[in-house]
Design a protein around this nucleic acid. Structure first.
Lengths: 251, 251
DNA sequence: CCAAAAGTGTTCTGATTACACCCATGA
DNA sequence: TCATGGGTGTAATCAGAACACTTTTGG
């Protein structure tokens, strides 16, 4: 009930509150997440989610947007940001009691403009989630700092299910985009592409999912018939949902 | 990234961390939520969600289960509890910086065993959510303390959508139950009952949603043909989802 | 003309809807 | 036998799956 009356509020143990970010993008057809390499202990040298403290005058969303700009070097981040969940195990940070409000962000393909390392990170890069070995034992993949593997697993599940029933897949592509671009997002996130014809029908029959432009794709190395270009529509939810095909990846 | 290296962790402003609970049940056919009346300032006399501080050795889930037992007086709470979201506006508590990790709980029908008031509450009762006037302006309904109206709105939306694609509706009924009991849960939560025949087929054809017993309902004031009794099955998700009928309530 | 990608059509199947109807029980 | 719920059956409809097919471009 938010600081119940009758308690001496100052008598309670202090917590630090941070935000952690799971920023996803599609990079060369692979769903990828932004990680930073820690420079200092604890977990020096390990890869970790970007994040930082919530400041006195901020709420969590504000802090997350600020960190997103600071740590990724993206001034005008144009994607989607939402709260994921809060992680509060007493021993999750060896230094002190830290509660982390994890967030989920969807960024358009950022292959060219790589993120810049934050001041407290010696490196930052996009990791294809498949290379992290989150599903199997730890030996196979990358050992993340803190409880970030758990956070990332939860975030991945949220991304995979969220594009089923929302239009958020469009947040992974730069405008304007072709329907094939959008379909590649589903393929990357789910590990299997939805049927071409059914996908087109589904997207085009959902009013407000995408809006057609007059232009066609004039890309350089393009092959075959040029595709019509689209922009994001105003719809947010899919009714009924886009069904995820059986895939070796996402079970 | 959970207390980045390079920061002096002790130099950061202290937060208090609490858990707030939105505990729902079906009471006389109405979806109801447990509220407590605040005895002290701030917001003395106002209704608020139950909750309390996270203790030094607890994570949020543990604190939520503890508060659930303490504030509701239910020793062996048998329902479902999950994290909802975290609320962190800087001014949400006038006394100090308090971040609240809100939770969502589903309790079976508790008409008879009413909750006992916690030590810091002068009263506790189940409120039909319709009587709270959350949708319209504040004049119509009950003014809740802090940002609890916002939390409750979010919780309601989660409940309504969650019973679409999970088997959590069974957490609102005591075992054993009839299919009509279960259908009344959907009617109460959604404001409109799903079609009788289609509902039965859906529930019975989803393996693991419910398991039949050999008994029939021998209730006292019962009328008409006695119904078969069921228990909860092991399934957690519905594929495809139970479709919510058009209703005046849930739009 | 051929490869490659865009885009369209078509049939089959399964689930949902919107009903009407039958069954079992207590008063 | 009648009211009251429990329980079953069914035709129309709709959406998705699967797959073949046509179209438009660059080499």
């Amino acid at each position: 009930m938010t600081a119940p009356a009758g308690y001496d509020v100052s008598a309670h143990p202090p917590f630090a509150v941070t935000v952690d970010l799971t920023v996803f993008t599609i990079h060369d057809g692979a769903l990828s997440v932004l990680l930073i390499r820690r420079g200092d202990d604890p977990y020096a040298g390990r890869w970790a989610l970007p994040g930082g403290f919530v400041e006195p005058d901020e709420d969590a969303a504000t802090a997350a947007w600020r960190e997103l700009a600071e740590e990724t070097g993206l001034e005008r981040f144009s994607g989607h940001l939402e709260q994921l969940a809060t992680y509060s195990a007493p021993d999750r940070d060896p230094r002190m009691r830290v509660v982390s409000i994890a967030h989920l962000a969807f960024a358009p393909g950022l292959s060219r403009r790589g993120p810049t390392a934050g001041s407290d990170a010696s490196a930052a890069r996009w990791w294809p989630v498949e290379d992290l070995g989150l599903d199997g034992g730890q030996e196979a993949g990358v050992e993340l700092a803190f409880d970030h593997a758990e956070i990332l697993r939860d975030a991945l599940e949220r991304v995979r299910s969220k594009i089923e029933y929302t239009t958020l897949a469009t947040q992974f592509v730069d405008e304007p985009f072709t329907l094939a671009d959008l379909r590649r997002v589903y393929a990357a996130v789910w590990g299997a592409a939805p049927d071409l014809g059914n996908f087109r029908r589904k997207v085009l029959s959902t009013s407000g999912f995408v809006v057609a432009t007059e232009q066609v794709d004039e890309g350089e190395g393009r092959l075959g018939r040029p595709a019509l270009l689209y922009r994001r529509g105003s719809a947010t939810h899919l009714q009924p949902a886009m069904l995820r095909p059986d895939s070796p990846l996402s079970g």
